[in-house]
């Protein structure tokens, strides 16, 4: 079981469905490995349901009901033929958390890694509309990520292997949050295996002055490459 969990307020945002997608992906991957957080999330959904059922309502016309009841006829057929047991299940790639399967159809083996340094490889998964970048990161066994600070929040979930930094050792399913207050973050993969992580990095602060704008392309390069 994991020893590193998201805070309760962040879990509640996830259960509420109000967490930005980049963060939600990370929490979801962690929850898949963490029975304790799954239980908390179920309780946070209960809270959501109570808030939902207590919401103030106003009566409206019944047109919608008539329309919907009429629609059921066309749907009824689909429901009968498409029972979940007969749906073809795409072969689930081993080791890939459910929420990443659409982004990684060929599993972790099929990832097209881009080499950032001899020890570090990255593969972009998606960019959220808030500018946050979600990437896979592979640190070769024993490899070290260059010391870096964080301009925005960085979330890391370990998918395979393990790594450590000054604060501890992180294993599969562990989730780590780092922001500006954490200086000189310097992760090292364990010696015995490559470490693969899911990372989400909030958009870097944009320089907005005329000359400073010219710098933006430089800092837009991968967070880990320097």
């Amino acid at each position: 079981m994991s020893n590193h969990h998201p805070s309760a307020d962040r879990l509640s945002c996830f259960a509420a469905g109000s967490l930005p997608m980049n963060q939600a992906l990370c929490i979801s991957v962690h929850a898949e490995h963490c029975p304790q957080c799954r239980r908390e999330l179920q309780r946070l959904e209960l809270l959501g349901a109570e808030l939902f059922s207590a919401v103030a309502v106003q009566r409206r016309s019944d047109n919608l009901k008539t329309a919907l009841m009429a629609k059921l006829d066309t749907l009824g057929l689909e429901a009968d033929t498409g029972s979940p047991a007969t749906e073809p299940k795409p072969a689930a790639p081993a080791n890939v958390p459910r929420s990443l399967r659409k982004l990684l159809p060929d599993g972790l083996q099929g990832v097209h890694w881009k080499r950032l340094s001899p020890a570090i490889y990255a593969a972009k998964l998606c960019t959220d509309v808030n500018g946050a970048k979600v990437e896979l990161l592979k640190i070769k066994a024993g490899g070290q990520v260059a010391s870096h600070n964080h301009s925005g929040e960085e979330i890391t979930v370990v998918l395979a292997g393990s790594f450590s930094d000054a604060d501890g050792v992180y294993r599969r399913g562990d989730i780590i949050f780092r922001d500006r207050e954490h200086k000189h973050h310097r992760p090292i993969a364990s010696q015995d295996a490559d470490c693969i992580c899911l990372t989400s990095v909030a958009a870097p602060i944009q320089f907005t002055g005329f000359f400073a704008r010219l710098l933006n392309p430089l800092i837009r390069r991968s967070h880990y490459s320097s």
Partner: peptide, 12 residues
């Protein structure tokens, strides 16, 4: 901006 469905997020 993502390919991921909400159902995927909460499946676990």
């Amino acid at each position: 901006a993502s390919e991921v469905d909400a159902d995927d997020l909460f499946a676990a």
